[in-house]
Design a protein around this nucleic acid. Structure first.
Lengths: 350, 350
DNA sequence: CGTCGAAATGTTACCGGTAGCAAGGATAAT
DNA sequence: ATTATCCTTGCTACCGGTAACATTTCGACG
């Protein structure tokens, strides 16, 4: 009945349990870690007391004694709330299944001291491992330091960052190429791309894949390029410039959904009908993509799966099971929606 | 030069530092916690060694010894990635400033055992305090258990949940009322509301405030009500039903931006021009709101400020400074954009 | 020049668990 | 019945810090 005092229950210690059960601390510890060498009767008695007292062992003390904190961290920059939201959930799910806790450590991609920042964080917090999300995952120095410290880490990015002991690489380049071919097949020849900021590898990959597809097709493509910063405003600016051309593009690929949404908005305000007069495609398949009109043709990354896989693999490394697969390419898929269509019917001829 | 060995640096202990500096552990500890009673020369010598060895104290051991983990948790359900993303960032910022780490604990609002789940989490992880985000913050049992355990917590919600020692209450009811008056002033009389799921207090508050404004205005309003679940599909369904009416509403208030976006999309596909033939308003001022066309008139909560304030206050409680303000109402504001306009010109007369 | 007090540093007992090793008890083999 | 063996359980030394209390060292003052 001691357990009835709720105020005290937080401070119940293993000692209290041992005393109440009339056994030694060692035995209680065994029950907690369900060691096989405990008598059935004793085990049940101890468990009863534990329940009665509402006891639960301190993760901190445990961490100190075992050298494992049962904590993993996710390192994230946050330009993209959608990506982070979905991945965090996936990671948290796996953590919960394995009795781990998740600590988030936001960083700034542009901060020159990110790597040092992360190192200090890892050192101080003593997390058992880290998952690094893009675009922070593109920074070499982070896995370099982590690996030097002997802390397991896994990166999720669009390119291979060799310093990571394990990586999930989403093949954004191929996906963008596939999207390029898709537009060509639809008959588009005046095509524009709104690129992302070149400091991000993802932006470079998406651009490269797309341009490559157009170039190798052999089709006589008139290509127009603009640079955006993945933000809505930059998309509006680029769109305004493209739509104001005499020979306006019939299709625009924006390197993320946000800029694509800007194109849609700009086009609508310019009185253009989509997709008949203009096809638009994005990248990410964020919520946004299917909520605007017309719904965006875009590229989907299996974010949730990637997050779960990454976490499973990190936990494996933490448990000294080396990852079976040190590098894994994740295939992405084009999601066709209403924002792209074959050129023809209501074609815009300037 | 010992510090050059990076693999070893993770396991540098206070003892190593003491030995290297030729002082006692106690003195190193004093330097770490910058206690005033250390000689200047000694202090500098120790600091030099610490730097050289790349030592940083284990947060775990510290937690065990001091009884404080320097960890706070954010408890969140995640129907709304936007809200969580913004708030998490605000919380993390404040944490970083005060040397705290942030652990996220996702829960399910609909889970009958949430409260127990959170209690176990708090007990096990030994966090120093918790911030509970809506809608999880509406569940009484959570703060009840937390308070009984003596763990500081702060809730952010649209109503007062008395069991919290401290709360930030966003006045969604008044905001919705203000929005209602706004629509009336614009001349709308055939008005519809797409409500959120009644199990959420936020949905009830938004509805109540809006209806109240219409009722007390004295204006002869024809009100139409539909129930949604805060999801896009439900918004489409409700919109289809409303737009199919003989006497179609001239203004629709959707209780969140996502459903409002659905209304916009449905209206557009029905060939309606906005805002001339239909005014639409949402709630949340998510990214979405300004990215669609027309941009949504909606209601903004100062999410980032709220998150920071909540965190500051929680940290104050943790440091035994009772919160100066145990309840604080946060005023919200109507953001007028292009989706609402005065009735008249291109009015829809069915 | 002796004494006293403040400042600086050291010694050591925790914090709440884990786990190696030893000891006690019960059951099985001879 | 006796001893060997296995199964249970207890004792205790850590894990890496913090902080109370003791001790030493000096400078200052009478």
């Amino acid at each position: 009945m001691i357990g009835k005092d709720p105020a005290a229950s937080l401070s119940v210690t293993i000692d209290d349990v041992a005393r109440a059960a009339g056994v030694s601390i060692r035995t209680v510890s065994r029950v907690l870690n369900d060691s096989p060498k405990v008598g059935g009767a004793t085990r049940e008695a101890v468990q009863a007391i534990i329940r009665e007292l509402g006891y639960s062992p301190s993760a901190r003390a445990r961490a100190l004694a075992t050298g494992r904190s049962n904590l993993i961290a996710v390192v994230q920059d946050d330009p993209n709330a959608h990506v982070i939201g979905v991945m965090q959930r996936g990671i948290a799910n796996v953590c919960a299944r394995h009795g781990f806790e998740l600590v988030v450590h936001p960083v700034r991609f542009s901060d020159p001291d990110v790597a040092q920042n992360v190192e200090r964080f890892a050192r101080r917090s003593r997390v058992d491992g880290l998952i690094v999300l893009p675009p922070a995952s593109e920074i070499d120095a982070i896995p370099q330091r982590l690996t030097a410290m002997g802390v397991p880490s896994i990166g999720i990015a669009s390119i291979d960052v060799t310093a990571y002991p394990c990586m999930l690489i989403s093949d954004e380049r191929s996906a963008a190429a596939e999207l390029g071919r898709h537009l060509l097949q639809l008959g588009h020849r005046r095509i524009a791309i709104i690129e992302g900021p070149p400091r991000f590898q993802s932006a470079q990959q998406r651009k490269a894949g797309f341009l490559e597809a157009l170039a190798t097709s052999g089709a006589p493509v008139e290509l127009e390029r603009r640079e955006g910063d993945y933000g809505f405003e930059s998309g509006m600016t680029a769109a305004a410039s493209l739509l104001g051309m005499k020979a306006r593009p019939t299709a625009i690929f924006a390197c993320n959904d946000i800029m694509a949404a800007a194109v849609v908005k700009a086009a609508r305000e310019a009185g253009l009908d989509m997709p008949s007069q203009l096809s638009v495609a994005g990248f990410d398949d964020s919520d946004l993509a299917s909520m605007i009109s017309p719904a965006l043709t875009t590229i989907r990354r299996p974010l949730s799966d990637m997050a779960e896989t990454a976490t499973e693999r990190l936990l494996a490394m933490i448990n000294d099971r080396p990852p079976e697969l040190r590098r894994q390419a994740v295939p992405l898929s084009v999601v066709r929606r209403q924002s792209t269509t074959a050129i023809g019917v209501g074609d815009a001829r300037t």
